[in-house]
Simulated assay, not measured.
Amino acid sequence: MILNPEGERSLMLGQLNGRVALVTGASGGIGRATARALAAAGAQVVIADVEVAAGEETALALRDEGATAQFIACDVSDPEEVRALLEQTVATLGHLDVLVNNAGIAGSAKRLHELEVDDWDRVLAVNLRGLFLCAKYALPHLMNRRGVMVNIASTYGLIGAPQAPAYCASKGGVVNLTRQLAVDYGPSGVRVNAVCPGYVDTDMGGQRSRMVPPQAAAALERREGNAARQPLGRQAHVDEVARVVAFLASESSSFMTGSIVTVDGGCTSTFNYNQ
């Protein structure tokens, strides 16, 4: 069951009051839903993304709902932009309590020998290097506040998947970097967990929007068909992922660190035919 906005607010109401949360890749999809869930729980939210118009619209929508929210443009693969992002966040809001590393791209759907080196490098730069950079510059602030990091990985970081070598490699790196950060920073009071979504009802990176309509329809049909073979038989709504992120960001998960949490309708628990 998908909670309505009132149900979502009552579920987490006040749990993040006084906290400052930074969500990367938050102009749409899971990131936007996560920013909204954190705001609904009382957090002041910073939205970071390369998509300026959509990011500003997301921040405005949250402010219209009564939240404290702002947008900061940032390419997470650029160390200077990430450094500036963290500096501006703390200078404006005073501190940082929650970092959600959500920014990610899918890359080209090809087998490895067909993949261009630049395609591989770009996926790893955003999905893994970007997480490293955001964590690097956020961790001193998180240690000051005994804060929380939530990394958005993927079921593709747990299994092999067809024609996704760079994406699988990058998300596998996110999964194990999450565990490693939990080991190093637990003694400093920082909890680090990851969420692995499966099929989610969102067009990641606007891939289908760049296809001609028949191709986009076929791609969506394939995705929905794969999701239908899962135990729960459907794709997730972005809010269903966002609520898990908000839980991990809150004190309700106070004894969880190094956890890799699947939100996948059971897809990694069964054999998904006809990938």
Rank of each mutant, 00 (worst) to 15 (best):
A54Y: 13
L13S: 11
L115R: 10
V20H: 00
V50K: 14
L22E: 01
A37Y: 14
D75C: 13
A41E: 04
A37G: 15
K110W: 08
T89Q: 01
A53N: 15
L96P: 05
R83D: 02
L112T: 06
R111T: 10
R19K: 15
V117I: 07
V23A: 00
A48C: 13
V50R: 14
A35C: 07
G55S: 13
G104K: 11
F71N: 08
V117D: 11
L85I: 06
A21I: 00
L11V: 07
E80D: 13
H113K: 15
L112G: 07
L62R: 15
L112R: 12
I105C: 01
S77K: 06
V76C: 05
N17A: 05
A41V: 05
E87K: 15
D64L: 07
S108M: 05
V23I: 01
A73G: 11
R9A: 05
A106Y: 12
L11W: 14
R19E: 09
G42F: 03
G104A: 06
M12K: 12
T68D: 02
G29N: 09
L60W: 11
L86P: 07
G31E: 02
A67T: 09
Q70C: 05
C74E: 11
F71T: 08
S108A: 11
T34H: 11
A106F: 12
A43Y: 00
R32P: 03
V90L: 13
Q15I: 06
L60M: 10
L96F: 08
